[in-house]
Nucleic acid binder design. Structure first.
Length: 422
DNA sequence: TCTGGGGTCCTAGGACCC
DNA sequence: TCTGGGGTCCTAGGACCC
């Protein structure tokens, strides 16, 4: 049996841990630049605020209902996530951290008849140790565990836990689940399924294998099997190193000049390169992309350029140089760029890199030491203590993004600890 | 006026090889 | 009228996830 633990309205719950006044009130958390709604308390959901909705579309609702609005504070959410995961790891032999607010747990050490009670114990413990409310679905497969979690959330009588037992007939449960609520069925597939008059998880699971395979690829077939109780997606405790690492941002104020864009891109490369070093890889390629607002169709410009590096590297200055070449290839004067980003990929293991036969790579050991020292200093004194000059002052803290209502970094910055009493 | 960011996997089709 | 038949690799694009 597999359990899926899902933190309820995670970002909102993180804010509530440090601000009890928010309990019972409508609260939302916004994306970068305070652009879209990315988390909502139950009270905010009831008001009709949608996931991903642009802020300007719901200002009316917000003002009328005194909705509490927060800019995103990922330093806080990331740290709270780690606390939740550490707690879970004490109660399960295997834990797969699936996202910032979700984890799959192996439940095979718990007897069938004790699963629900065990789940309730986890709910209580995580709440007590971290302050974060969670819901748990337990089932024979990951896809069913996902469904079980949805049910657990919807019905308070379950106390945050819902179990689908392998031997029970759960057709009635599947009949209540619309196809769009199935893990792996998104917007396009929902449309397609409805066209075929397939409306519930029950309908979907009953379709013939070859038809599923043909219309929804191997992924759709796998999903159907999982709904039938046949496990196809294994618990993956240690996911592979990433195949690509990206850093992209929208700008609150559009950028027009090459210099401005290049400074932003240097900042993104710096971030991504640090992540690459953390997973002990070197990147063999880099892609840079820039685009104008995708909502203005009259003057839309969007272009990407990829550079293959002659030698895989994790050395920030080399990556910035390559990024500059890529930007030179796609930059056009006269546009108002609204978004830019970089992607690093084609990773090789840092410790097993092949040296190019004819190209002498000078100082590669020195480069390694430099990056090592930079990373150590930044880990100790803060991410922006030593940065590349190419970034430009404005980009050092990526301050081009607006976050007017960010809460303090309660758990990761000594200067921003929660003040109980002055 | 204002619209997030970071990933994964699969498939079809073309290039190329023997 | 006939016009080989498989492979592999790469890429772009489309779907999905949170």
């Amino acid at each position: 049996m597999i359990a899926l633990v899902d933190c309820n309205n995670f970002y909102v719950s993180c804010e509530r841990v440090f601000n009890a006044k928010l309990n019972g009130k409508p609260v939302i958390v916004l994306s970068n630049n305070d652009g879209c709604v990315i988390a909502r308390s139950n009270e905010a959901k009831v008001l009709g605020i949608k996931m991903g909705q642009p802020l300007f579309e719901c200002t009316g609702i917000i003002l009328r209902n005194k909705v509490h609005v927060y800019s995103s504070n990922f330093a806080l959410y990331g740290d709270m996530s780690a606390r939740v995961m550490q707690t879970l790891e004490q109660f399960a032999p295997q834990v797969e951290v699936y996202s910032i607010d979700e984890a799959f747990l192996c439940m095979k050490h718990v007897p069938q008849e004790e699963l629900a009670a065990h789940g309730r114990m986890l709910v209580q413990t995580v709440k007590q140790w971290t302050g974060v409310p969670i819901s748990i679905g337990i089932a024979p497969t990951k896809t069913l565990a996902k469904l079980a979690t949805k049910i657990a959330k919807k019905k308070p009588q379950h106390q945050g836990v819902f179990v689908i037992h392998p031997n029970e007939n759960y057709d009635e449960i599947l009949k209540q689940i619309p196809v769009e609520d199935i893990w792996g069925i998104g917007r396009q597939y929902t449309k397609k399924l409805q066209w075929y008059r397939i409306y519930t998880a029950y309908d979907f699971a009953r379709q013939k294998d070859d038809w599923l395979r043909k219309n929804f690829t191997i992924m759709g077939l796998r999903t159907a099997h999982e709904l039938r109780g046949i496990s196809c997606i294994i618990l993956d405790e240690q996911p592979e190193a990433k195949q690509a690492i990206a850093c992209t941002r929208s700008f609150s104020v559009p950028k027009k000049s090459f210099t401005e864009l290049m400074e932003a891109i240097a900042a993104y490369v710096t971030r991504a390169a640090h992540k690459v070093r953390t997973q002990k890889s070197k990147a063999g390629g880099i892609q840079v992309f820039i685009m104008t607002s995708r909502f203005n169709h009259d003057v839309y410009y969007s272009k990407a350029h990829t550079i293959e590096l002659s030698e895989p590297t994790d050395y920030t200055p080399h990556l910035i140089t390559a990024a500059r070449r890529a930007l030179e290839a796609i930059f056009r004067d006269g546009y108002e760029y609204k978004r830019a980003g970089i992607l690093l990929f084609d990773f090789v293991d840092r410790d097993h890199t092949q040296v190019h036969a004819f190209e002498h790579v000078p100082n590669s050991a020195a480069h390694h030491s430099v990056m090592n020292v930079v990373d150590k200093i930044n880990a100790k004194w803060g991410r922006h203590t030593v940065v590349s000059g190419a970034m430009g002052a404005a980009n050092i803290k990526m301050t081009q993004t607006d976050r007017t209502n960010r809460s303090p970094r309660f758990t990761t910055d000594w200067r921003e600890l929660l003040v109980v009493k002055k």
